[in-house]
Amino acid sequence: MITISGIKRILPHRYPMLLVDRVDELVPGERLTARKAVTANEPWYRELSAGATDEQHAYPPVLLVESWCQAAGVLAAWDTPNPDVLAGQVMLFGSISEVVFHRPVLPGDVLEHRIRLVRALSDTVIFEGEALVDGEPVLEVGRVVMAMRPATELTEAAAGHVVADQAVAAARAVVTDRAVATN
């Protein structure tokens, strides 16, 4: 079992995008089971209208996938934990395929993510699995491919970007902060 503090030593993700609460079972290089509780106070529900229906409280499908993939990330990174994204290797998503949503997930549900390692190659890992609520499948994941890449691939792209767009981004940030503050 890995508690939240342990997960934070492995994954760089933080609030509001740390979507794995606990790892229940881990067989390195083979499989993992983890959980994530869904509550009505998730930040994604902040802008819902007052009279929102249950249906409208369905957990965003793409975040079900993100939560599942972060659990897979723990399995992938277990051998080389790298919470500092800027140094060493970083795990980048290559692709996600054949993901099927079986039914909506609502506040009060606890997601049980099941991850199986399909293939581990020198610089690439491929996972499959599903997510269950009360033993019933809510999400099916056909294939997720993650590639370990030198972090410099990201930082160089970012550096190139920052130099060119820094003024624009900074100006927008001011505008956005003012807009966020007022609405």
Binding site: G94, S95, S97, V118, R119, L121, T124, I126, R143, V145, A147
Partner: peptide, 10 residues
């Protein structure tokens, strides 16, 4: 190359 690899795993 990642996709070519994925084909083989499928």
């Amino acid at each position: 190359s990642l996709m070519a690899l994925e084909v083989m795993v499928v």
